[in-house]
Amino acid sequence: MPRTVLDAKGISEALDAMAEAIASRPQDGPWAVVGIRRGGEPLAHRLVKRLTEITGKEPAVGTLDITLYRDDGFGPHEWPQVGITEIPFDLHAHTVVLVDDVLYTGRTVRAALGAILDYGRPRAVRLAVLVDRGLRELPIRADAVGLQIETQPSEHVDVQLEVTGAAADAVVVGERRPQEQGGDKK
């Protein structure tokens, strides 16, 4: 049975904790919050709001498409969606906060690091994730985590957000559907 590990209030509190963790290193600023397409994109915008409240300064915001940096190509029945990356600020002057919804194998983050460095040389890169589900395949860790849970490889962590069409904000853990292929394996 799928279990809800975060409801709307839980997600909101998790984002607060992530913003606090980032802001606790004021020497990092100014920040640029960059959402990894597509799961990290709406979360990046929410994180920007909170960081603005805490620090009194609005960080820059961007989005990163990592399709061309994936290490697994795409499935034989899949049309890869090559999205647009938007970095409308000077990377050199900022500490980039990469934002994703779920941290799992670490391969997405590895790809994102490659992608961001091809756009310039940020002062530093931090990683903020809403859910860290463990089961890493690469030596990568997050600097700000909303919720840490233990999961099985057979499970799927689904971050549902109203802004992307879900009925309500929630994070649900269920069994991976057997026909699932391609795309981001969360």
Binding site: T67, L68, Y69, V82, I84, T85, D118
Partner: peptide, 14 residues
Amino acid sequence: GFLQVSRRTIKKVP
């Protein structure tokens, strides 16, 4: 989506 790559300073993806 690929138009963007050619307009960057580093015009290469892996």
